[in-house]
């Protein structure tokens, strides 16, 4: 499983970074990006789904394996 932030939709609400700092980081402007290639380890699957479900701009997507 992989997470991906759509940069054109992200407005920097930072919900993802607060919920799953293992998966998301933020740049100097406060916009989020997935860490590394966005691969989600099994113990972070729940957090990844929560990040998606809390992004007010619907900017995060999940690619299932």
């Amino acid at each position: 499983m992989q997470v991906k932030v759509d940069q054109s939709k992200c407005q920097g609400h930072n919900r993802c970074y607060a919920i799953a700092p293992e998966l998301f980081d933020v740049d100097d402007l406060g916009n989020a990006f997935e860490i590394g290639d966005g691969v989600v380890s099994p113990q972070l699957v729940e957090k990844a789904r929560l990040a998606v479900a809390n992004c007010p701009e619907y900017a995060i997507s999940i690619v299932e394996d």
């Binding site: 407005q11 920097g12 609400h13 930072n14 406060g30 929560l50 479900a53 809390n54 992004c55 007010p56 701009e57 619907y58």
Partner: peptide, 20 residues
């Protein structure tokens, strides 16, 4: 509440700059 896509800080390009 775990799933909470609220819009208290607005939506779109004017998202509250001071939200953090």
């Amino acid at each position: 509440r775990e799933v909470n896509r609220h819009a208290a800080f607005g939506l779109g390009i004017h998202r509250c700059l001071g939200s953090n």
